[in-house]
Structure formats: structure tokens, C-alpha cells
Design a protein around this nucleic acid. Structure first.
Lengths: 189, 189
DNA sequence: CGGCTAAGGCTATTAGCCTTAGCTTTATGG
DNA sequence: CCATAAAGCTAAGGCTAATAGCCTTAGCCG
């Protein structure tokens, strides 16, 4: 039994490859094991929580990747340009890896690691919103609005909910216009 | 073997009850059969496609319910008030049945029935947008923006993605303000 | 250099699930 | 009153995750 030298990171990598190729439904320990050249139970040496933990790790990895992409897009930009770039980057990531993005919601109840990754993601958004002079609770509401729009658009478009012929890129530009206008004229109660 | 007198509708009803109580993961033919007082294979007499078709039927039913709620909310209203009411109704439905709403994306590739139910839902939104003078492609882009915001907010809030203490109702009001302002000043290219 | 320990494999097994096949009973319509 | 279709059943096969227990390798420490 030649030792394969598996690590948890590699297991997650195989899981992601499977998801990319065949969708979140195809993420099974048996399939991951086959791909890693190992028997199914051996995976428990690296991912002790079994399938549930593997899904959790996938969600953490994907959230982190997405946060990185958003941070990269925001770098060196400000104001409307930053908002537009981050929104485009969000959708671009989801479009490049639709199944991967679709696997995000499959995560079980959030835990510390996932919360940390999500916090990084939210941090980028909050930073981008800072130039609009939003502070305290209003910044939170604005960030939630941003995330809702970004996630909704990503989820619906990768899920095939937008059937008509109209160009998705144009829809995105309209959304950017609406969002940036809304942020500039944010309701101050 | 006393005859139970099951119908496909009742099977879907039991499936929804299970989902509401224990989440989408708990939707299993064995559990549905137990709840219906029937052996598992008997379900195939009513839902010939097995679990996959049952999930599909659940998605159709939920989409239809949601469309009804939105139509009801739009009734007798127009302009900003209609947009606000529909957005609130959307979120209210998701909040009342979080697991049910969460089960929506689990549907397999779209089919005719699901498309019809979704078309009804989109129809309500398009009707509400009519007062803003949006026509043709622009109405489509606006409807997509509406759905993205509504779905994103519903999915993230029921998924527990909004951890901070800020009131979700306030977030919703801000979103409504931004959206209605964006629709009034919709970019005319 | 020898041996111990821990890690990373394995096989075998259990339990739960979906699905198909084929039989039996019930209800219903002619 | 009977024939037939619908609606139930049991049995069996094949998939999955997960646990238990064993074996081998790698590396460290005396």
C-alpha cells in the first residue's frame, strides 16, 4: 500500500475539481477517494468529520477565494469605480466556477472558520463603501444591500434563472448604475 | 393493507412539512413514506420519478406559492408602494418558511412546469415595473435587478449570513429606498 | 544502529437509502 | 357479479457514509 501523501488541502482540491466538473451533487467521499487513489475510509484520516466537514472546508475555501478576488478588484480603485469593479469581480468568479459557487449554500450551519472567511469578504465591501461616508449601522445596511445584490445576481444567473436573450453584462451595468446612485444618495435617517 | 388514498399533491405536502421541520436534507423518500403511513416503494405509484421528481414538484409548488404571495401584495398598489410591498412579501415568505425557500435551489435542471411557475413570478414583477415606463429590454434588466436583490436578501438572511445586530427590517427599508430611486431614475441608454 | 510510536493506509462490516421487480389486494365500472 | 386497473405490499440489489480493527511505513530518539 504505497503511501499517497495526502493532505487535507489536497482532499479539498479534489473535492473542488469534482464539483467543478459534475456539480455539487457529485461530491461524495467515494468519488473523492477514487480521484485521490485511495480507499474511502482513508479520507477520514485527513477529514475526520467525514462528508459534512469536507463540505464545510469547501465552503471555507471558496469563500476565501472569492474574498481574494474581490480584494484584488478593489485594489487601487475608489468610489464608484471600486464598487463596479468588485461587483464585476463577484459575478466573474461565480461565472467562472458556477458549480463551485453553487456549492456554497450547501455548507452546514456556519462555524468559526467560515465566519472568518466571510468576515474577510465583508471587510472588502465595507472598505469600498467607506468613501461614501457611510458609518456605523448605515454602513452595515449598505454592505448587506451590496451583498444581496451581488449574491442574488450570481446565484440566479449561474442557476439558469435568467432565460431570456438579454445580455447579462448589460443587466450588470444597470445594476451597477442603480447601486452606485443609491450609495451616493444613501438615505440618512 | 388498508388503502390510504394518496395523491401526488399529498405526497408533496408531506415533503414540504418535512422540509419545514427539519430542513431540505431531511427530504427522503423513507421519511415521506413513514409520514404518509405507507411503505417507501409505494410512493413510486404517485411520484414515478422518485426522489428527483419529488424535489422538482416541491420546487414548482414553492415557486407557485411565492408567486401567489407576490401577486397578492401587488394587488391594488402601484409605483413605489407596489415595489415596496412585493419586496416585503418576498422576504416575508422566505422568513416564514426558511427551509422551504432554501429547498428551491436544490431543484434539478429546469423543466416546463417550473419554468411556468417562474414565469408567473416574473410576470408579477414586470407588471409592477410597468408604471416606471420601462419597456422591452430595459424592463427585463430591471426585473432581473429586482429579482437579484430580492433573492439575494432572502437567501442570505435565511441562511444566517447577516450576523450583526442591525435590524433586518431596517436593511430592507434601505434596500427599498435604493431600488425605487433606481427605478425612477433608470438609466435610459 | 535498533526499536518505538504515530500516521496513513487497508479490509470488512453495519446501517440507511433509493430503486426495480413482481405479487396481492382493493375498489370500481360495466 | 366479475374483470381490471390502481394502490398497496415484500423482497432484493446496489449505492452511500461511517465505524472498527489491523498492517505497514516513516521518522525520531536513545
Amino acid at each position: 500500500m504505497p503511501r499517497v501523501g495526502l493532505t487535507p488541502e489536497q482532499v479539498v482540491g479534489h473535492a473542488l475539481a469534482l464539483i467543478d466538473e459534475q456539480g455539487p451533487e457529485a461530491l461524495t467521499l467515494a468519488a473523492v477517494a477514487a480521484r485521490a487513489g485511495v480507499a474511502t475510509p482513508s479520507l477520514y484520516k485527513h477529514v475526520s468529520g467525514g462528508l459534512a466537514e469536507l463540505r464545510r472546508l469547501v465552503a471555507v475555501r471558496v469563500t476565501g477565494e472569492l474574498a481574494d478576488r474581490l480584494a484584488e478588484a478593489a485594489l487601487g480603485r475608489g468610489g464608484d469605480a471600486a464598487v463596479a469593479a468588485v461587483l464585476r469581480a463577484y459575478h466573474a468568479y461565480a461565472t467562472e466556477h458556477p458549480h463551485r459557487y453553487g456549492a456554497l449554500p450547501q455548507a452546514p450551519q456556519p462555524d468559526a472558520d467560515l465566519a472568518a472567511a466571510a468576515a474577510r469578504l465583508v471587510g472588502v465591501i465595507v472598505a469600498v463603501l467607506r468613501e461614501y461616508g457611510l458609518e456605523g449601522s448605515e454602513a452595515i445596511h449598505a454592505a448587506r444591500t451590496f451583498r444581496s445584490l451581488a449574491h442574488g445576481f450570481a446565484a440566479l444567473s449561474t442557476g439558469g434563472a435568467f432565460q431570456l436573450a438579454e445580455d447579462l453584462g448589460e443587466t450588470q451595468e444597470r445594476m451597477i448604475t442603480v447601486l452606485t446612485a443609491g450609495l451616493r444618495g444613501w438615505p440618512r435617517p
